[in-house]
Computed example of a mutant assay.
Amino acid sequence: MVLDYKNRQNRDLKILELGVGAAPNLKYVPDNSDITLLDPNPYFTKHAEENIIEAKKRLKSVEWVQGVAENISSPSNTFDIVFCTLVLCTVVDVKKCLSEVHRVLKPGGMFLFLEHVAAEKNTWKRFAQTFMDPVHYVLFDKCSVHRETESFIRASSLKDIEIERFQSELFFWIDPSITGTATK
């Protein structure tokens, strides 16, 4: 998908990853891209160092920025692609985060995401999510397991939203998950 987008643009891409962690996704970034890695945790840089060193061999630039997704320091219309993996469950304000994604994307730019979401209401899985949420929040860096992330994405100013639901292989209370794309 990203390579198809790059080929349609006929140029190297400027990419932003939200909530980088140890930067395991760098291996999937197309060659010759410029990537900005945004994460609020200053201690992740140490864990990401090996992946960043390896990525610098094939990418134009790799920039680490400490910050939050609700207040991205980049100018408007900067990035061809913004992506996140299991991040929207931890941001303080999902609406503000998605507004910032929209702001920093170039016109026609793509937002890619993979997230776990709230189970259907009035199901045993939703009950388990509600029960486990306080514990999970403390143990897993403020992750909310029953957040209505899909609804937030659909209500955002992004367009051409395509979402696919699937069953994850994470803990039973972290299910279902979604993957998808949207554009500015």
Rank of each mutant, 00 (worst) to 15 (best):
V2S: 08
V2I: 14
Y5G: 11
Y5I: 12
R8K: 13
R8Y: 06
D12V: 07
D12L: 13
L13W: 07
I15Y: 06
L16A: 01
E17Y: 01
E17L: 04
L18H: 01
G19E: 05
V20Y: 02
P24V: 02
P24F: 02
N25E: 10
K27M: 10
K27H: 04
Y28T: 13
Y28M: 13
Y28K: 12
P30M: 11
D34E: 15
D34L: 11
I35Q: 05
L37Q: 00
L38T: 04
L38R: 07
D39E: 14
D39S: 08
P40Q: 13
F44N: 12
T45H: 08
K46F: 14
A48W: 06
A48S: 09
I52N: 00
I52A: 03
E54P: 15
E54R: 14
A55Q: 02
A55L: 01
A55K: 03
K56H: 07
K56C: 13
R58S: 10
L59S: 05
V62E: 06
V62K: 06
E63D: 15
Q66H: 10
Q66Y: 13
G67R: 06
G67S: 10
G67K: 07
V68M: 03
A69H: 13
A69Y: 11
S74K: 11
P75S: 13
P75M: 12
I81K: 00
F83E: 02
F83V: 04
F83Y: 14
C84Y: 00
C84M: 09
C84A: 10
T85A: 07
V91C: 01
V92R: 06
D93C: 03
V94S: 00
K95G: 02
K95W: 00
K96W: 03
C97I: 01
C97V: 02
C97T: 09
V101K: 04
V101A: 07
H102M: 06
H102D: 07
K106L: 12
P107W: 08
G108V: 12
G108N: 11
F113C: 01
F113I: 02
A118T: 02
A118S: 14
E120F: 10
E120G: 10
N122T: 08
K125E: 11
K125I: 10
F127C: 03
F127I: 04
A128E: 15
Q129W: 05
Q129M: 08
D133W: 03
P134Y: 01
V135K: 12
V135G: 13
H136P: 01
V138F: 15
V138W: 11
L139G: 14
C143S: 03
S144D: 12
S144N: 15
S144M: 12
H146M: 08
E148I: 09
E150R: 13
E150N: 12
E150K: 12
F152Y: 15
I153A: 07
A155M: 15
A155I: 14
S156G: 10
S157I: 04
K159Y: 15
E162C: 11
I163S: 01
E164P: 02
E164W: 03
E164K: 15
E169R: 11
E169I: 04
F171M: 12
I174W: 01
D175A: 03
D175T: 06
S177W: 07
S177G: 10
S177M: 08
I178S: 13
T179Y: 11
T181A: 12
T183H: 09
